[in-house]
Structure formats: C-alpha cells, structure tokens
Design a protein around this nucleic acid. Sequence first.
DNA 1: GTGAAAGCGCTAACAC
DNA 2: GTGTTAGCGCTTTCAC
Lengths: 341, 341
Amino acid sequence: MRDATLRDVAELAGVSARTVSNVVNGYAKVTERTREKVERAIAELGYRPNVLARNLANGRSGQIAVVVPYLDTPYFAELLQAIIPRARERGYNVLIDQTDGDPAHERELIRRGARALLFDGMIFSPLGLAQEDLDDGDPALPLVVLGERTSNGTFDHVGIDDVAASREATAHLIGLGRRRIAAIGDQPYPTGEAAQLRTLGYRQAHAEAGLPVDESLIIHTPRFNRADGSGAMRLLLDRADPPDAVFCYSDLVALGALHEVLERGLRVPEDIALIGYDDIEEGRYSNPTISTISPDKVTIATTAVDRLLARIGSPEPLPGVEVRAEHKLIARQSTLGRAPR
Amino acid sequence: MRDATLRDVAELAGVSARTVSNVVNGYAKVTERTREKVERAIAELGYRPNVLARNLANGRSGQIAVVVPYLDTPYFAELLQAIIPRARERGYNVLIDQTDGDPAHERELIRRGARALLFDGMIFSPLGLAQEDLDDGDPALPLVVLGERTSNGTFDHVGIDDVAASREATAHLIGLGRRRIAAIGDQPYPTGEAAQLRTLGYRQAHAEAGLPVDESLIIHTPRFNRADGSGAMRLLLDRADPPDAVFCYSDLVALGALHEVLERGLRVPEDIALIGYDDIEEGRYSNPTISTISPDKVTIATTAVDRLLARIGSPEPLPGVEVRAEHKLIARQSTLGRAPR
DNA sequence: GTGAAAGCGCTAACAC
DNA sequence: GTGTTAGCGCTTTCAC
C-alpha cells in the first residue's frame, strides 16, 4: 500500500488540500472543528508529509552542509557536536562533508557543483583552499567560513584571534624561563595561511620579549595530526641542541610530540615543555595533561549557525561579517608540571 | 536571473526535455550529434540539474542516514570516516545524525518520524534502544544495524564477535599472570546489551582458566567515555584490595582509567595492566600505549554501506543478514610494558 | 532516437 | 476560512 498523500487526507476529511496543508504547517487560522477533522484523518491514514515534494515546492531543502577536512579530528568532531543540535533546534538538518583537505573537492563544494540545491547554505572549514579560491565560489550560496580566513565581504567568517592566541601561548613558555622554543606546524605556502598566523604570533612573542628566533626551530608539517607531531619532534630531538619547549599548532601535534619525548625517556615539562592548541578533551586526560589554547567552541558553533540562517533567510545578500570568538590559555601539566602529591 | 532549467536547455538545443534528460543521465542511446548540441546548450546556460526535483520525480533522495550516539567518540568518527567515501563512491550522500543515546530520539528515527523520505536508508548504531525497540521500526525502512544487536530478520546487522573478543582480552591479562582482574563498563539493564556481551566474555575467560570471578570487581558505568573510566578506576583504587589488571569496555574508558592510575603515582603495567576495546588512534599515542581489541572498521563500514544499498535497490524486502567482521587483539605497552631502551 | 505529456506530492496565489 | 489550481523541475510511459 502506497503512502497516504495530502490529497487522500483532504478527501477523507472532506476538505481541500489547501486546508490540510494549513493544518500540517500550523499556518493561518483554521477552525477548531476543521482542524480536528483533518487531524483525525491524518491519524487514520498514518499520513506523513513528503519532504521531497515540500522541498521542491519551497525551493529550499531545509538542510545545511557543514564541511570539514577530517571527521576524525577531535576539534572538528567537538565543533560538529555543537553545530548539529543548534541547527536542528532551528529546523535544519545537517549534512556533513569531509574533504580530506582535497582542494579540488573543496573548490567544487564552494562552487556548488553536482550537489547544488541539496543544501541551503554551508558552514565551511577550508584546508586546501587559498584565500583567493574562496573569492570565486558561487556568490548565491549562503556561506560561513570557519577558521583562519578573512571575509572578502561575500561571506561571514567566524574564528578566534589566532595571532594573539599564538603569541600568548609562546609568551607562556617564555614566561616559564624557556629560551629555545620550537614551533611545530608551520606551512609556508599559499594554503597554509592558518599555520602562518600562528607562526606570526610565535615571532611576535619573541620580539616582545627581546628574544631572537632560531629559524631552524620552526618545523613544517603537512597537517596537524599526531603523526606529524611525533615526526617533527623526532627531528628536533635528534639534533645536538634540542629545544627546551615547543609550541604545537594543534593539540594532536602536541600529543604526537609528547609521545615521542616520553618514548625517549625524557621528561615533560622538566626537559621539554609543550603547549598545544584547540583544547580537545584528549588533552585533559593525557599523561601529562596538555596546556593549550582553548577557543570558545560553543560560541563559534552557535554563531556560525545563526549567521548562516540569517543569510539564508535574507532576501538580498547580506554584507560579510567578521566574528571573533573568545579564546583563553589553559595551563596544565605539560608546562606547569604535576602538582606535588 | 533564475537558474536555467532542463526546459531552457531543451529549447536552446532545439530538442525535447526527454532528450536533455537522457543526455544528463547518460541514459539510453543518443546520437552523437544530438548529445553535442545538448551539451553545448548546457554549458552555455550553465545548467545544473535540480536535485530536489529529481528526488521528487524519482521518489528517492539519494541520501542515507548514519546515526551514531556521539560524533565526538573517536570510534564512531573513524567509522564514519570510512563510511562516507564508500557511500559517496556509490552515488549517495551521507546524512549524519547524533542521538546522544536518547531513546526517544532513536525510536523516532527508526520509525521514520518527521524526516521520512529524507533518506533512503539508514545505518544505525543504537545505544538507548533495547533489542525489542528495534523490532518495531518502520518495516519499509532499509536498515543496517551496527554494534551488538542481533537481527530479527527485518534488517541486517554488522558487528564483531564481542563475546569472543572480550574473552580474548581477558585471557590476555590472565596469561600475563594477573589474577585480580577488574572489568569497567558493565550495564546490567535492558539497553546495556552491548556491555553485557563483554561481561559474558570476561566471565568465560575466567571459567576457562578455572579462576573465580570477584563480582565486586565488575564496575558499572553509564557510558563508555574517559570520565567514566577515570571515575570507575578511582573507586577501584580506593579499595583495600585494588585489582592488578583491568579490562576496559572501550579505549576511552581505558584512557580515563590510565589517567587516574598515573595520577596516583602507580605504574602501568607493572602495578596495573590495562586493556581497552576499539583500537582508536589515540591509544596508539598515549603513554603508555594501550593494548586493545581491534575491530576491522573498514570492513564494517564498507559492508554496512553495501548491504544497505542492496536493500535499497531491492524491489522486495530482503531477509535480514548477520555479518560478522574480523577482530584482533593488539598487545601494546599497557599490558606488555615498554620495550627496554 | 526523440517528442509530448502525465505525473511525483506539496505550496501558495487567487478566488469566493 | 476554505476551495481551486497552477506550478516547482525532473523522470518516464507511450507513441512515432
């Protein structure tokens, strides 16, 4: 037996399609009496509105896409965890896309290739795209960009002040008396803008403290994961003059680096202090726990959703807005040491 | 300017809508000459098919839902990481839903409440649902269930042999000479079927070794996360007779437990050996690294997608299939100790 | 191989 | 308030 349609309900209730539609959508005024009749018919037939048809008629899909490079990166998982309920409470479904940082895939998404119209707007955390790529996405696509980009005026951008945060992280290490401070995660190429902001903060902290930067202590990594962290740390520890502290561009990098340090029988923070970035839960349970920069993820998530829905709801294009969320430095055992027992 | 429609293309190319549709979908035979004409028109107008309309006409959405309890649980994140590309390569989009283990939410999904037809099928990893709840989902919804349930014949089930895996994990600890082995994660209530299978394996291993089970060493936890692990371990360590080994029902539990043990200045595995479950990447970088049961996630993911698409594609309902994926025990530092340097 | 036209099920402008 | 009906843009049966 095929599913009941709105027409079936109308017939059974002895009203028109229009009225059924009104009841279903809570629209307009419907007599209490009619409403009851309709609702009884709906119940009897087990009628459920066909979302597909509704979408077509509305020209909207009721879905937003959230695009991240990697789903198994805790930072993004935690962000999604906050985005999904927010979107749902505002009546939207979330479609998740994972790009692996593939520039072609990302470019296609932002240009709204094959899957146009499947989503009404997009929250995008680009990785493989340079700033200029962002400039020629589909201008009709409501877009909110996360992370370390700058709005060109056609989309909103939500992020924290990465330069300031990185400066604070580095200053924290300097304040602890460390003088040979490495940085793991720089990416000196067009798509590495995010990383470059952190490197800038790192340099600023040195400048403010009147310390020179040893360029050889700035290690480049393709991504910000555990393997990159441990690999970079291996390089540093193999040197004749290893660092006494490391600013890692993500907590995962810090955790990879930590692993490598401990494997060698060195102590954290006594021999080497570490600080990460992102404040993922994992860093609160590692041994030692990881000091980190904690972005206000809930604000980032809710702001991103709210801004996006505002864009979607607006008849004409809204000007791009820059939103700066809060961040704070959380000092834990990887810089402060364990509390005496 | 509104988007070009198929009709616009047909007009410009001087052919019928039918032909354009054929070209776009690569259907049937179209003369090389016509195809070219059409393609030129498509390019000229920048035509992109409207997915919404196509969905309505097809009665299919081209989307599958993947429902997990928590997105920020690494095990699920890693699974999704494998599911998404598989589904995409077979032409489907993935809609991710997170239930927080809320039984009402899960029940609604499986009964296909509000969002009926938004997805053509569902891969479901239930948490708050008892076996019987699974029995009265929408029978017309193509469904593949993950984890520790059993098919009732109306859906497919993909999982590993949890009892055997748990037995092996426990036996590994026994083989190391441990005799007071705790278990963290039991859930002795209807929705705790997953946990109960692990407890069963734990008991079997003891029985096989001719060892008694100290019931007080089986700790219940509401979930399988880090906080639960550290909380349970705290209880165990506060006892006069703490265990010398712990079988944890997930790697997160093991990582939480590990944290607690080390905070107290005890050594792993010398004082207490730990083994987890899931083989998440985090356990390969912790200090010490975590021994674990490693399910074949890629097989689970690809099998789940393939089975689901088979169900979706089949005109009549397919009988439910039980698929058992492989698993293996991976012994690392948390049971074997660190390799001598 | 291609054209004409009838839906897919819902929304909403337009009447009454 | 409620009925009538023309789309939304595509797929597909049926002829030719």
